[in-house]
């Protein structure tokens, strides 16, 4: 069998699996596939054959080529802005709908719920969180994280509250700390709120009928090419209430048409009904 290139591989993968990685950023997806080939000591045509004969291997492949990096309270300034500006503006609503698109292992889902609790709005909030990767969804539901790895984020947590509020609840109010097993575990009152589901933004329709006040999609679009980014942002735009916000990663930006339809503040983009031709 002649050697196929990574584009042909992705086309083939699209045909016989539920996944479509064809419109991921070329250089990045190629590198991720190369990494899988190296790790499994396979040629690309062997990898393709394996995805055909072993459906369970496909899920492993998805886990290997998608990126699952996430942290508690990553980028302090985003959470400050949410706490000071975005969430207080939602106070008068009966229900506040939030979607974490590409939630990975769930740290930001819990970070956000902590803000809502500190603002006494936990009973109004309805949270859905989705990811393409089955495995991370399982671990998001568990809400268990390595203690040592997260120790620095507990500092970030404390730093954040020192800047925002005089009497925040301590970290232990939200997480059980089990140093012996090197674990922190989200407490049940917070863990029972989000609905975590496996969902692929690229190929599946959005499975929610409600519109959202906040959509988090942090460091997900960076793996897509510009055309696919635009397609996904259009879906988010349609699913946001007027005045709702889309939250991206620190170095992500909206391109093309939709940058005129949001007002940007740092990495928080507010849906607007007017065009902003002067967008910088």
């Amino acid at each position: 069998m002649a050697e196929i290139n990574f584009k042909e591989f992705l086309e083939e993968l699209k045909k016989h699996t539920p996944y479509n990685f064809c419109d991921y950023s070329d250089n990045s997806i190629q590198r991720r596939i190369d990494k899988v080939l190296k790790e499994h000591n396979l040629q690309i045509d062997e990898l393709l054959a394996k995805t055909k004969s072993e459906p369970e291997f496909v899920e492993q492949l998805v886990d290997d080529i998608t990126v699952n990096t996430t942290e508690l309270f990553r980028n302090k300034e985003t959470w400050e802005y949410l706490y000071n500006k975005v969430i207080p503006g939602l106070k008068s609503k009966t229900n506040i709908n939030i979607w974490h698109a590409g939630c990975s292992t769930g740290q930001e889902v819990y970070s956000n719920l902590i803000l809502f609790n500190e603002l006494d709005l936990l009973d109004k909030v309805k949270v859905v969180a989705s990811d393409i990767n089955k495995k991370v969804i399982r671990s998001a539901k568990l809400g268990e994280y390595d203690y040592k790895f997260n120790a620095q984020y507990i500092e970030v947590f404390n730093e954040l509250w020192n800047g925002l509020k005089t009497n925040p609840k301590p970290f232990e109010h939200y997480f059980n700390i089990d140093e012996d097993h090197d674990k922190i575990i989200a407490k049940d009152f917070i863990k029972k709120i989000p609905k975590f589901i496996k969902h692929d933004l690229v190929v599946e329709d959005i499975p929610f009928y409600q519109k959202f006040d906040i959509i988090f999609c942090r460091n997900v679009l960076i793996y897509f090419n510009p055309e696919l980014q635009l397609k996904i942002v259009r879906k988010f735009f349609d699913k946001l209430h007027d005045g709702g916000v889309l939250i991206l990663g620190t170095h992500e930006a909206l391109h093309g048409f939709f940058k005129t339809r949001f007002v940007k503040h740092g990495m928080v983009y507010t849906k607007s009904n007017t065009f902003h031709l002067k967008y910088k």
């Binding site: 950023s25 250089n27 990045s28 990126v67 990096t69 460091n219 960076i222 620190t250 170095h251």
Partner: peptide, 20 residues
């Protein structure tokens, strides 16, 4: 940028990644 890998794409754009 801090905390991102920076790649050069074929169309001479930058793409970023938060991978390991």
């Amino acid at each position: 940028p801090s905390n991102y890998h920076m790649f050069v794409e074929f169309d001479a754009t930058v793409s970023l990644s938060a991978e390991d």
